[in-house]
Design a binder for these strands. Structure first.
Length: 462
RNA sequence: GGCCCCGUCGUCUAGCGGUUAGGAUCCAUGGUUUUCAUCCAUGUUACAGGAGUUCAAUUCUCCUCGGGGUCACCA
């Protein structure tokens, strides 16, 4: 069974890049009827917060990415890690290092001065003497000092590292006993049964260290898929400073979960020429083997396009529900179907849609000057009056087509072009020259409001 | 700097020795629309550079250049 995981450290909100790797992991597990697990890496007490952990969970909920099983919290697993440290110590695969921080710093400076790579020199590796006074030891693992370590990566291929280039006896437990990242990751993944690790490729160079731990403990090494970074416009790793990287900010901006997910799944992954993927299609088609090797630049143009696509294809009842987040309650509006039908093609986001609808529902308080100058001509008053008269006396006025008929009558009777009535009427109804179809607008507003707006415009502009 | 990864239109990408280098987005133009948006059509724009290998390289190899990542008692 395929078991994947997402393992964020709760130092802030859920990041767009993190979400993408989470999505990939989720899809791959679901495709294989496996499990997608969640582990909160909250061992850095200084930087972690419960709110951040909750924010991550909230984002997952919004997007409908459900994890399987219980959430694992690293902060609750100290005894487990301690047990494995003891084991390695007793097996002679790890040892106590009494080097002080000052000594370590000194060593590094010497190495840098000699243009050597900075690494621990193994001075306590085989130490059997009396430990120095006043130094709490760290625990270091005995890493191989030569040989090749190959990371078999489903995205990058086989990546080989020379032990002497990158390894030293790295710390697995700090002086206070707290285990370090590369150590606990390996243990947790093994204990959780994770066998397919999909994560950012910034972890690729950590992987040899984790392999050292896997091997020391006799654990099976999982499959790895190191997903390329998402870069900002400068071509650097996307970070919080780039703005709009908080997943939940997209909810506030009026993006739909399926649009965001669809956008993200296509960032670094593709399936031929297909652009639109439903969640079911993603689950069916996703394969981490098809992930790109190169980083992609984060650019939301396509997200906007996808979002408007999904808005257009949303049901009116779903849209009405989403609009309530922007203080637009349409449930009791008798023309809500017309409103939604008319507006779903016009908005890139739900937020924008709410604004557009509110704009129409509100009686204009001013008129765009340029528009008036351009389209409100000497004969406009007469035309609007003629139209107004028809509106006030017409019996059946409900549908856009009812209003359209009246407009046609005026055009025919007065022998004018459609623009002659359309333009000034548009100013009267909306205060400007752009916007939805006027017949729909009037059907939405109803007879009284339509007449009011016509009268207002004549008063204000003649 | 050491080590590792990457390099096709502005952007997301297809391509897996022989293609007029395809799609999407963006942009522009035209059509539809009383207007705007939608929609439809059309168009501009790409294989980082140089050596090989081969009858043939975007595709395979090497070098150069460029970009990124990583080198903690952070995760």
């Amino acid at each position: 069974m395929v078991v994947t995981r997402f393992a964020p450290s709760p130092t802030g909100y859920l990041h767009i890049g993190g979400l993408r790797t989470a999505l990939f992991s989720y899809l791959w597990a679901k495709k294989n009827n496996g499990k997608f697990l969640l582990r909160i890496e909250d061992t850095d007490k200084a930087r972690n917060s419960a709110e951040a952990a909750q924010a991550i969970l909230d984002a997952f909920e919004w997007l409908g990415l459900e994890h399987d099983g219980e959430i694992t919290y690293q902060s609750q697993r100290d005894e487990i890690y301690a047990k494995y440290i003891e084991q390695l110590l007793s097996e002679g695969k790890a040892y106590k290092c009494y080097m002080s921080k000052e000594e370590l710093t000194e060593l590094r400076e010497t190495q840098m001065a000699n243009k050597q790579r900075t690494m621990y020199d193994g001075r306590y590796r085989d130490f059997t003497g009396t430990p120095p006074e006043g130094v709490e030891p760290v625990i270091r693992i005995k890493a191989p000092q030569s040989g090749t370590i190959i990371v078999k990566d489903g995205v990058k291929g086989n990546v080989s590292f020379q032990a002497q280039d990158i390894l030293d006896d790295f710390v697995i437990a700090r002086a206070d006993g707290a285990p370090t990242y590369n150590f606990v990751v390996a243990i947790d993944d093994h204990l959780m049964g994770v066998n397919e690790v999909i994560r950012g490729d910034d972890h690729l160079s950590n992987t040899p260290k984790q392999i050292v731990v896997y091997e020391a403990l006799g654990f099976d090494i999982p499959s790895f898929y190191h997903v390329p970074m998402i870069h900002n416009h400068e071509g650097k790793k996307l970070s919080k400073r780039d703005g709009a990287t908080d997943v939940m900010a997209y909810k506030e901006m009026g993006y739909l979960p399926q649009a965001l997910l669809n956008f993200l799944v296509r960032l670094g992954w593709s399936h031929g020429d297909q652009e639109i993927f439903s969640m079911d299609e993603m689950k069916e088609l996703f394969n981490p083997q098809d992930i790109n090797k190169s980083a992609s630049i984060y650019n939301t143009e396509k997200l906007d396009w996808l979002n408007s696509h999904y808005i257009k294809n949303s049901s009116n009842s779903d849209l009405a529900e989403l609009l309530t987040d922007y203080d637009l309650i349409l449930t009791s509006h008798d023309k809500k179907e017309i409103i939604l039908d008319e507006m779903k093609d016009r908005a890139k986001t739900i937020k924008e849609m709410a604004e557009l609808i509110k704009e129409i529902l509100q009686t204009p308080t001013s008129y765009d000057e340029k528009a008036v100058k351009k389209a409100f001509k000497a004969d406009s008053v007469a035309i609007l009056n003629a139209f107004g008269a028809k509106v006030s006396t017409s019996k059946e006025l409900h549908l856009p087509s009812d209003y359209h008929t009246l407009m046609e009558e005026v055009v025919n009777e007065m022998e004018i072009g459609f623009g002659k009535i359309g333009q000034p009427l548009r100013i009267a109804l909306l205060g400007k020259l752009s916007g939805p179809g006027l017949d729909s607008v009037m059907a939405i507003l109803g007879r009284d409001e339509t007449l009011l707006r016509i009268a207002n415009a004549i008063t204000a502009n003649s």
